[in-house]
Simulated assay, not measured.
Amino acid sequence: MTTAQGTFDITRWDDQTYLDAEGVKLGAIDVGKAFVGGLSGTSTARLLTAGGPVPTSAAYVAIERFVGSLDGLDGSFVLQHHAVMAGESSEMSVRIVPDSGTGKLTGITGTLRIDIAEDGTHSYRLDYEV
């Protein structure tokens, strides 16, 4: 496995609530990101979110398409996200969708880790093989 690391900025965040009933909210969010570091490029994602009356409990699933370069290899690939937060604990899984790579990234596989610092900086670590 090869590792690429860097940061990303959120360039777009358009959200809408499509259900708000009995303390439960379901939403859809369109997100744009700009990546620097091992990944250099942009992505577009659609998140589906769920939250209840406890503000520290929520979940989301998402599909995200990255376009740009990875360690100098030009192309694109798709990521699948799923996450659950419950109080102080959380689980997040982000993996490259099999056979979604294009260009020099055809055949890419791997997983992505996202960290958010206290100052709001988003960093990533992509472990991958092409």
Rank of each mutant, 00 (worst) to 15 (best):
V31W: 07
K25V: 09
F35Y: 09
S69R: 12
I96T: 03
A86K: 15
S90C: 03
L79R: 08
T106P: 09
W13L: 14
A86N: 15
I29C: 12
S57A: 11
Q80A: 15
Y128W: 03
F35A: 08
M1T: 02
R113H: 07
W13F: 15
A59W: 02
L70E: 06
V31D: 06
G87L: 09
E91W: 01
P55V: 11
S93E: 10
V67I: 09
V31I: 11
G110P: 02
I63Y: 12
R65D: 05
A45P: 06
H82I: 00
V67C: 09
L73A: 12
T3L: 11
G103Y: 13
E22N: 09
L39G: 01
G68W: 04
K104H: 10
P55R: 15
T17D: 15
A83I: 04
P55Q: 14
T56V: 11
P53T: 08
H82E: 15
D15H: 15
R12G: 12
L126T: 04
L105E: 03
G120S: 14
G103P: 11
A21Y: 00
Q16Y: 02
S57W: 05
I108M: 04
R46I: 10
P55W: 14
A58Y: 13
G32W: 00
S89N: 14
F8H: 05
I116F: 00
Y60P: 06
G37I: 08
G32S: 06
D71C: 07
S123E: 07
T42A: 03
L19Y: 08
E22P: 00
T7P: 04
V61L: 13
H122E: 04
T17V: 14
L79C: 10
A86Y: 09
L19P: 00
G68K: 03
G52T: 09
T121G: 06
G103M: 15
S100I: 02
G37L: 13
V78Y: 01
M85H: 09
S57H: 07
T102P: 01
G101F: 01
G37P: 10
G38A: 09
A117N: 06
E129S: 06
A4F: 06
G52H: 06
I108S: 01
I96K: 03
A83D: 05
G38K: 09
H81P: 13
G75C: 07
G75W: 03
Y124G: 11
R46S: 12
S123Y: 07
A58P: 03
